[in-house]
Design a protein around this nucleic acid. Structure first.
Lengths: 250, 250
DNA sequence: GCTTGACCTTGCCGCAGCGTCAACGTTTCT
DNA sequence: AGAAACGTTGACGCTGCGGCAAGGTCAAGC
């Protein structure tokens, strides 16, 4: 048998057969005088076994090990491990499809497409008008939703609750406006402390504890610092001051 | 923000961020005087969106298209297509796990590990003794099981039925022995025609039709020729003769 | 004898999505 | 001043082959 016949017999390409030779999976057969490889039925049997194992999802390395260890319990171990891996993949795909479905449902509703339904609702409550600070809110909320660890997500989302709860939208509008007014102020402006106090006052206790817990993690406090870094100084001062107040409460 | 901060914020490596720049997914930000990239919050938001889409399973190319087409129905189309793809993958993994389970169950039973339970049973019925031809049977059955198209599998497996059915094992033993006797005979030996007739006589009609159908396909008849090629001439003659008899019956 | 076409040979590039050096400059802390 | 921890570009490595290049070989038909 020449390589083309072997390949057709088993249902692979000649390129695949040569690849298996190169990887040491299938031993190189004898050559004819002209250099052609000359296969026997045994080679086809081995090749077919290799194919069956690859179709099950084993890597070529694993198959080489299995074939080398000559039919022992090695195969069982590899197969069990593979099954566990496949189970993991199944669960992963299910998760992804669930998120996809949620995302598709959200795109049917509104333009805030690439976010979770919960966040889209929150953003819908944010005043869309000319507030500069509301735009900042949106960016940070989007980041938290997409990137923060789930453990910290609740704490940080809490920071924005006073601006976004349904019966607080108008109050949130006012708070954002007061932030906007501080764009050109200095950090020692008296309105800074006043606004920080008002923001802190609107946070319910359980959210404060979640937030304070998050801030214990150095990664998270760095998160807060980096995101607020491009705000004007007075606005940064508001946030720092508010966080201090919350830490005292927690 | 420098690249390390950005990466930590979103939860990726700096290598990943640079890779996205290189692929045109994330625009290159302004540089500081020393050449360092200087990021803003907007970049983190975009990066986080890219991550969410990759985690859903979109390719970087697709994500680039989606981001470019700026939130249109493009996204919906891609997501729907992706969901279909994931559904396909799920089905595929389920199939593989089913086969894995069958294979694991088989390895619990006997040493003929990498074959289906049905085939393992058949092989168990084959005489294991010194018959050279029985060894050939094993090889070809293994090949058929693993490699032949399912459509042709039944036809070819049929060829071996007379040797392997439970109440025919002893007869099979005899037939194999008669094949062995022909190892050094010439194709015109009278025992060739006799053995071919006996083999053909033991095939039930429905198997004959399946086999003859398979032989209409040029691929399949080539299959038969290649596998028998390394047999001694008289044994090849038996098979050719038997196939002729079967064609007349079908 | 010559061409044509279907085989075969080796060898190297390409793919996706980064990880992982290498070889070097910058900033920051001590 | 030196070390640690950043940053820069660039190039190779991984999987499982597909595809191409640049030939050599062989059977059939003119």
């Amino acid at each position: 048998m020449r390589i083309g016949e072997l390949a057709a017999l088993v249902g692979v390409s000649t390129r695949t057969v040569r690849h298996y030779h190169h990887q040491g999976l299938l031993p190189e057969p004898a050559r004819r005088l002209n250099g052609y490889r000359e296969y026997e039925l045994r080679d086809a049997v081995v090749l077919a076994r290799i194919r069956r194992l690859t179709e099950l999802g084993l890597s070529l390395d694993e198959i080489r090990d299995v074939l080398a260890d000559d039919e022992g319990r090695e195969l069982r171990d590899v197969l069990l491990e593979l099954d566990a891996d496949l189970a993991r993949q199944q669960a992963e795909i299910t998760t992804r499809r669930d998120r996809l479905a949620a995302l598709l449902a959200a795109t049917d509703l509104g333009p805030d497409s690439a976010m979770s339904p919960a966040l889209a609702e929150v953003l819908g409550g944010l005043p869309a008008g000319g507030s500069r600070f509301a735009a900042f809110d949106r960016q940070v909320l989007g980041l938290i939703e997409a990137a923060a660890e789930p453990a910290h997500r609740d704490g940080f989302t809490a920071l924005f609750r006073p601006l976004t709860e349904p019966d607080a939208v108008r109050r949130g509008h006012a708070l954002n406006a007061r932030m906007d007014e501080l764009a050109d102020a200095t950090p020692d402006d008296p309105r800074v402390a006043a606004l920080a106090a008002d923001l802190a006052a609107h946070l319910p206790d359980e959210m404060v504890t979640a937030l304070v817990d998050s801030l214990d993690d150095p990664d998270s406090s760095h998160w807060l610092e980096v995101t607020s870094r491009e705000l004007p100084p007075a606005q940064q001062a508001v946030i720092r001051s508010m966080v201090e107040l919350l830490k005292e409460r927690g």
